[in-house]
């Protein structure tokens, strides 16, 4: 009887404990997803300064997004010649959200290679660029930086598709 009374008295604490365990489980599940990128239209950043970006992206599964290292290059094929342009990635006010602005030539076929490091994890992505913007459905995501061969393959596929894609 006494034990039952004590249990009743501790019900709020038990609820808190249950909530804490649930939160930990959800957090662990989120971390278990691994470090990846999500790409989106500039409107996804919710910042008007980003509206002229080619696209925006965010990091997922990174416990400390502000501490992650992010870089990007534009890889292009212009009149049969390979070109590479180091891009300046602009961080949004919301941690873990970034914008890529077009600073590569309009001519030729281009993909953007994203690379990120968060603690001990890495992530990479290849985002093809079409005449009407980034091509979401052809983007590729990796649990590591994309290899040169993967970038070349994406460029080749983009050139063969006639570069007619658009953001969908």
């Amino acid at each position: 009887m006494l034990r039952l009374k004590m249990l009743r008295l501790k019900m709020p604490q038990l609820k808190m404990l249950r909530l804490g365990i649930t939160a930990c489980a959800v957090g662990a599940l989120a971390l278990a997803e691994g470090f990846t990128f999500t790409i989106g239209n500039p409107v996804a950043s919710q910042e008007f300064q980003m509206k002229t970006a080619a696209f925006v992206f965010r990091t997922n599964g990174c416990a400390e997004p502000a501490a992650s290292q992010i870089s990007a290059t534009a890889e292009g094929l212009v009149k049969g010649a390979r070109q590479s342009v180091v891009l300046k990635v602009k961080a949004a006010a919301k941690p873990g959200v970034y914008a890529v602005f077009q600073s590569w030539p309009a001519e030729g076929d281009w993909v953007v290679s994203l690379r990120g490091v968060c603690a001990s994890e890495s992530a990479g992505a290849i985002v093809p660029i079409g005449p009407k913007g980034f091509i979401r459905e052809s983007a590729k995501f990796f649990p590591r930086p994309a290899t040169s061969a993967e970038i070349e393959a994406s460029l080749k596929a983009l050139a063969q598709s006639g570069n007619k894609g658009e953001n969908k």
Binding site: Q49, E64, P65, A66, A67, Q69, A91, A93, P95
Partner: peptide
């Protein structure tokens, strides 16, 4: 730059100031 980002991520005052400066 990373120190600034880290600090701003944890400090609402500096985030607000950053938006004002931007």
């Amino acid at each position: 730059a990373r120190q600034v980002e880290l600090h701003a991520a944890q400090c609402a005052q500096c985030r607000a100031e950053r938006e004002q400066v931007r």
